[in-house]
Amino acid sequence: MNGIMLTLTGVCALIAVSVLMFILGYLVWNGGRYLTWTFLTHLPAPVGETGGGMANAIVGSGKLLLIAALTGVPVGFMGGVYLSEFGGKTFPFMVRYTADLLNGVPSIVMGIFAFTVVVLPMGHFSALAGGMALGAMLIPIVVRSTEEFLRAVPLTLREGALALGANKWKTVATVVIPAGFQGIATGILLSLARVAGETAPLLFTSFNNQYWSSGFNQPTASLPYMIYIYAISPYDDWHRQAWAAGFILLALVLAANIGARLILSRGIRVARG
């Protein structure tokens, strides 16, 4: 009994890990195969023609992330500073809890929200709407990670600054935040990686575009959206491009995640040593 059950739990872990290995392997094999230079530098080909690429979608995703970072990160960061440095007891608990709930809101609902707040008044789809939908999703993640890393800054640093006669806000701005900066930046990177793969909030906010979109006021193509459209299309060539785009998206997201982990683990070791 002992041995059987223990082995079974090991099998469970093995299944979970092998699924990831399979996904990675398949995407690298299949996506890498179809990845060409044209794919990275050309616009999508018209329906019926083979070839073409997703250059506009790659740039579009970058634009969306830029808007998301500009709208989401300041709110999340300042909120995190409040929770860690200025908060009392009840109100911060409520903020924290609300942030966690907001984090659990289905992404498609965030899309509806951005639609009603940005798209309806403007009367058309735009990169701005999509970016703001992603920005709203960013806020709860950045709040929680910023708070966590600021809390990890040793109390003695704060006391030292105060003992030298610094105000509280000076202490926070010049001692506490710089000390936690590496972690905070990593948290922001992770949150961007998370929203970079979101498709649902973009379906009816930034929509899609077969061409380059200028500025932030037009419908914009994005990688996840193109993957979705190309994967459900009936064309083999589009399927191949969906694999290639999936490969790029996954590579970026996983690179951000692995990079963040490496930075964090090294940071912790330094702090301990």
Binding site: L20, A196, G197, E198, I227, Y228, G246, L250, V253, L254
Partner: peptide, 15 residues
């Protein structure tokens, strides 16, 4: 490794 699996975008699971 398992937490990386949680970071894979849902559209890729769809594909």
């Amino acid at each position: 490794v398992i937490e990386l699996l949680a970071a894979v975008p849902s559209v890729i699971f769809g594909v």
